[in-house]
Write a protein that binds this DNA or RNA. Structure first.
Lengths: 230, 230
DNA sequence: GTGATCACAATATGATCAAATTCTTTCCTG
DNA sequence: CAGGAAAGAATTTGATCATATTGTGATCAC
């Protein structure tokens, strides 16, 4: 017997795309963005009732969203039943450097073969806008476009599980990355996006992976430095 | 300003350990075990009401537990509001082979230095009981002890984030692994645990990592074969 | 075979109970 | 008499449940 035989309902319901998403999904996406783009500060407490008030929904959707985010590592359960945005240790950063390089290098490698010229052009446009954000000192814009750059690249890897693992890691360091930018400014944020794009145009998967690894290491080391220099 | 300055409540409440856990945590752990040890079949639908009836708790805790497991990748949301145990594709297996080898090799490597002789003895005891389960054809016991072996090893790596990533991956292939055992029996389940233990006694981290990688690849390839041969 | 109706499951809210933190008050000590 | 610590009350927050509403899948008539 094959696994596939176990599906009872053959039609997996194709539409499933109403304009309106369920409330718990909306709450999740809202919080996810706030965490990913540093609108929440590391250590900041997150309360259920505060969110029901500010978002105007009941407690159940809020609770479900918070549980998901805890499972993502984007929020931490404090033991007493308090939830807060995580504080990272230098050891955490070291683990994440290893995990991100392992996984995201592979994602870059896999994406290289699948990227069309127009996809690379889109990446280059994102990177140009990103440079403008850095020049303008727009931290929020920088975080969004940096995420968009990597997300766009990885979405072509056809690797949902690895992408999911990478996303989780991004959720973990999002708040801390914002703190780094707020402290040092965006000027000190060099990246290897140009190298990545050049290697992509050459279809050189190894070089893409290497540039990605360097990009990751630079960014994460910055967070590590900010943590040690209190 | 350091991140730490942002914590308002200095005392994070030390106790926090009542004998009784909240219901949503219990439901989560119950389902987690059922998935990890293959008591749920891939493709099997999971309903909220069914769980409220069988577990004797309200819907809210069940909903929270299901959301967590969806975020873990242990359950999948089918788009229409159905939830089921995931079916793996061969591509999924390939991604997981890569991710598991990357992460769990590193965990093994890190654990090597921290393991005391008595810890290795415990691993050996687990492995001996594991061999007995294989001989007896006890699939459930095999899955539990195999998980215990790796879990015990990784718990000494002092790497919570990497361990978390590894756990997520285990939740994804748990149900499919059970199907493999049910089909081929436990006889065809060789492992490299003996190699791992030997390398651990020599404190040879590289060899431990290599044996771990081989152990993982063997196990996952078995799942892949079972998927293709329908 | 297509369309309307029916039954069931999921979503979401509000109410209720329990736990924890914070504030206040009181008492003791220097 | 003042300062501080401890104990208790009040408020805030979390956990759970029961209920109403909405959407989905299935059945039946045409």
């Amino acid at each position: 017997m094959n696994q596939l035989d176990l599906i009872k309902n053959k039609a997996p319901v194709p539409p499933a795309d109403n304009g309106k998403q369920p409330a718990h999904e909306q709450v999740y996406q809202t919080l996810r963005s706030q965490i990913l783009f540093g609108e929440l500060v590391p250590g900041q407490p997150v309360t259920i009732q505060g969110l029901t008030d500010s978002l105007g929904v009941g407690m159940t959707p809020v609770r479900e969203a918070i549980r998901r985010l805890i499972s993502d590592g984007a929020l931490v359960f404090q033991g007493n039943r308090r939830v807060s945005v995580p504080l990272l240790s230098t050891g955490d950063i070291a683990e994440m450097i290893f995990a991100r390089i392992s996984i995201e290098s592979e994602l870059s490698k896999r994406a290289t073969a699948n990227l069309q010229t127009e996809d690379i052009d889109r990446l280059e446009r994102i990177d140009r806008r990103l440079d403008r954000m850095i020049a303008d000192g727009d931290v929020g814009g920088y975080l969004r476009l940096n995420q968009a750059f990597h997300e766009t690249l990885y979405s072509h890897a056809n690797a949902p599980i690895l992408s999911d693992l990478a996303e989780r890691l991004w959720l973990r360091f999002g708040p801390s990355l914002r703190v780094v930018c707020g402290r040092f400014g965006t000027q000190s944020l060099p990246d290897r996006h140009k190298d990545i794009i050049a290697a992509l145009r050459n279809c050189d998967a190894e070089k893409v992976a290497k540039a990605t690894a360097q990009d990751i290491e630079q960014g994460m080391e910055l967070i590590a430095e900010a943590l040690t220099s209190d």
